[in-house]
Simulated assay, not measured.
Amino acid sequence: MQIDWSKIISVGAILMSIITIIITKKNLKKQLRLSKLEEILEITFFLKGYYASVFRAFTFMKRGVYESTEENETQSLLEAKKYKDNLIEIMTREIVIDKISRLKILSNAYLSNSIKGGNLKIRIHVISDLYYNMYMFVYSEGYAMKIESNAIIPHLHEMESFVNKIEQDIIKEMKLGYKSIDNNLKEKYFKEQFEKDLQMYSKF
């Protein structure tokens, strides 16, 4: 029996094409997910960077709203409105809504519901809602968004640590093998090495 090598080669070529298509499709999915995780990382970094401004404005607004009456605006509320104006100038309502919405959509689409990841998706949604509620409380001067007196409002260092852990877990999801830089490490470098490096690199 004579072997038809041309048919075998043709079938082999077809199989190789199919395998290549499957591998390419998987790689494209990985690249797409990686880009979306990068976007999630960017948004969390953005929100963390402005949390101090939101927290400060929220703290003053909450005090001002609860101390004031319909007949009398306290000095605290008048001061809070200044913080509100400053906050809105650097972070408009549209920007906040866009960032929060995008963050929740991306996390829903590209993060697992599994608790093995430390409830990463849930943590992202919780801080998203918290951030939005705090901002809208300031924006509406307490009218559009009510905040309970016993609501959990993280202090600056608490939120920073919480979001840092989220960022580390997102990086793990990216499976690139790297970790985000610790603030203590940055501070140590700045105190012990930064000036030396400045002098060394200035010679080049």
Rank of each mutant, 00 (worst) to 15 (best):
S149V: 15
E173Q: 14
D129V: 11
N133F: 01
T24P: 00
R33T: 15
I181V: 15
A52C: 08
W5K: 07
I153V: 14
Y201C: 05
M136Y: 05
T44R: 01
K36L: 03
E148G: 10
S101N: 15
G12E: 05
L103C: 05
I152A: 03
Y132W: 11
V138Q: 02
K99H: 07
T69G: 07
R93Y: 14
S107A: 15
A13I: 13
L34E: 01
T92L: 03
G64F: 12
I22P: 03
R33N: 15
F204R: 03
R93W: 01
S107L: 10
E67K: 11
I166H: 06
I14T: 11
K165P: 01
I19N: 02
L78I: 13
A52V: 13
E192T: 15
E187T: 15
Y110E: 08
D85G: 04
K121E: 05
D129M: 03
Y51G: 07
Q168Y: 13
Y50S: 12
D169Y: 03
I100H: 03
E192K: 13
N119A: 08
K196E: 11
E160A: 09
M174A: 13
V54R: 04
T24V: 12
Q31V: 11
I181C: 06
V11L: 13
L78V: 09
V163H: 01
G118A: 11
G118R: 08
I171G: 01
I23K: 06
Y139W: 06
I19G: 00
E192A: 12
T74H: 04
